[in-house]
């Protein structure tokens, strides 16, 4: 018996139960991570044996690859607009739904539905929604007397188009905020109202602090997910021939799309692996940064 009362047999039992994950972690995560790091230091087409190049892949990505910078800028644009907009919209919708009125369940269903849609089917749908001539969006704008842009076919509007589409999937975030709002004790608002606090003060001094863990969670998940945006760009901005994806003048060439092309169309496995590690480091950096920034701003109830 060890001091915690964990016998050897008990430990063995524990390991037996977590064995599926442990084995999977070694085979599908830890092993491939080491492999990927090793491959990123080689030049390798999968046809001939890999040759050692050291940090050359990383060096050329950062210093002499204009397409990498383009994809970094595109991805950054998408993250910076999509994540805050989705959080603001999700919170606004959740506050609308957080009214004790009949029929809220129905509206919740309607707003939640698009977020679980198949991404390729949704991309096919939005591809036609964004069609400048026959699409739903420009038809609507024409009805309002506005000549809409070329959307996906325009270098300036291609990225904003995908941001607009991402708002269609805001339902999941809305559900998280709705659950958080429902967890706020009503007495807090009553006490604040007695103290003469208006709606704005109650929002900023009660609502926001009380749901700050949900905001924090959604923004972390949003940033991680948005940095990996791929399917929409792949489906909506590609023509028939492979390699054409990325939109007008590479306006929607996102990091993962670029990485995919390097790996599976050009078979530059070393270069693609280096790109993957750079993506990982960026995501890690943002996660750490967000955690730091929120240290004193996220309110956890006592006991957390």
């Amino acid at each position: 018996m060890t001091r915690d009362g964990m016998s050897f047999r008990q430990s063995l039992g524990g390991y037996a139960f977590i064995a599926p994950w442990l084995v999977g972690f070694l085979i599908f995560t830890a092993g491939p991570m080491i492999g990927s790091l090793a491959i990123s230091l080689h030049s390798w087409s999968m046809l001939s044996p890999p040759t050692w190049v050291g940090f050359e892949n990383y060096q050329s990505i950062i210093t002499e690859d204009p397409l990498f910078l383009t994809s970094l800028w595109n991805t950054g644009f998408y993250v910076i607009f999509s994540v805050p907009l989705c959080i603001a919209a999700g919170l606004a919708l959740a506050m609308l739904l957080h009214n004790r009125l009949p029929g809220m369940g129905f509206f919740r269903t309607m707003l939640f539905l698009p977020s679980i849609m198949n991404i390729v089917a949704a991309s096919v749908l939005w591809l036609w929604v964004f069609n400048p001539e026959f699409g739903l969006l420009n038809t609507f704008l024409r009805w309002l007397g506005v000549q809409g842009p070329l959307w996906l076919q325009s270098e300036a509007w291609a990225k904003p188009s995908l941001v607009i589409m991402s708002l269609w999937g805001v339902g999941g975030t809305t559900i998280i905020f709705l659950a958080a709002l429902q967890g706020i004790p009503q007495e807090l608002y009553e006490a604040a109202a007695l103290d003469g606090a208006g709606p704005a003060r109650r929002f900023f001094h009660i609502t926001i602090p009380m749901i700050s863990p949900a905001i924090f969670f959604s923004s972390i998940m949003g940033v991680i997910g948005s940095f990996q945006v791929f399917a929409q760009a792949f489906v909506m901005t590609g023509a028939a021939q492979a390699g054409s994806e990325g939109g007008p003048n590479n306006a929607t060439l996102f990091l993962v799309l670029y990485l995919y092309k390097k790996a599976f169309l050009e078979f530059r496995m070393g270069y693609a692996s280096a790109l993957a590690w750079i993506l990982f480091l960026i995501i890690l950096l943002f996660t750490v940064l967000q955690t730091r920034l929120s240290k004193n701003r996220v309110y956890y109830e006592a006991g957390e």
Partner: peptide, 26 residues
């Protein structure tokens, strides 16, 4: 309760942050 449980569980959660592209090629 087994030795290393807390560490292993934290490791399990941490892998959620890993983008699939890192392990994709291997």
């Amino acid at each position: 309760r087994f030795r290393g449980r807390t560490v292993l569980f934290a490791l399990c959660l941490a892998t959620m942050m890993l983008p699939g592209q890192v392990t994709m090629i291997p």
